[in-house]
């Protein structure tokens, strides 16, 4: 299969870019429409697959990137030996989950959901650039507000925040009072 000019332009752009390229950027740089870009991406990925490359183009953090197949994780990880950070603890993951769905949010609101002190988990997430301080809440004490970063999306392979698992369901849940939650769960999706 011989790739057309557009597909190869898209490939070159994604390869050379230092950040995920959005569909809009790809349109702009190639002078093509969104549909053509999507088709070009499909053709590229098909070519990667047909020729058994170790690469695919994926959508992550609001744009496209060339990524290695999972299969080669072990081999590639040698490049980052000693520099790669460990996996997140359960406390950090839970804190991450709460911030992702209720951002921007304060430490207190995270702690009220987890029922436990979250200082060190928040510190870890800040250090690892998964969250950032996005402002202060205009209430007494002006507590800090935390939001997720692009690094968060990339780390968990999310293309954007709407792609968080069960996004709508949890948005709804967070906005509910106790009685509403019970009714919903009793008559709705109860286990």
């Amino acid at each position: 299969m011989i790739l057309d000019r557009l597909a190869r332009e898209v490939e070159a752009l994604i390869f050379a870019s230092d950040e995920p390229l959005s569909i809009q950027q790809l349109c702009e740089y190639t002078g093509s429409g969104e549909d053509s870009i999507h088709q070009a991406l499909d053709r590229l990925n098909k070519a990667f697959l047909d020729q058994q490359h170790a690469l695919t183009i994926i959508e992550v953090a609001g744009g496209f990137r060339i990524a290695t197949d999972r299969e080669f994780g072990d081999v590639v990880s040698q490049l980052f030996e000693g520099r790669k950070l460990g996996k997140l603890s359960r406390a950090a993951l839970e804190t991450m989950a709460v911030i992702a769905y209720s951002q921007p949010c304060t430490r207190i609101s995270i702690e009220s959901i987890r029922g436990v002190n979250c200082d060190s988990a928040i510190r870890t997430l800040l250090e690892r650039d998964m969250i950032r301080i996005s402002g202060r809440m205009e209430t007494p004490g002006r507590p800090l507000l935390y939001s997720t970063t692009r690094a968060f999306l990339e780390y968990f392979g999310l293309s954007n925040l709407d792609h968080l698992p069960r996004f709508d369901e949890i948005e709804e849940l967070l906005g509910m009072s106790s009685s509403e939650i019970e009714e919903r769960d009793l008559f709705g999706s109860g286990e």
Partner: peptide
């Protein structure tokens, strides 16, 4: 998220 982390730590982007 932990499962995603598991998957994505094995995927490298360039």
């Amino acid at each position: 998220l932990q499962r995603s982390e598991e998957t994505w730590t094995e995927i490298y982007t360039s």
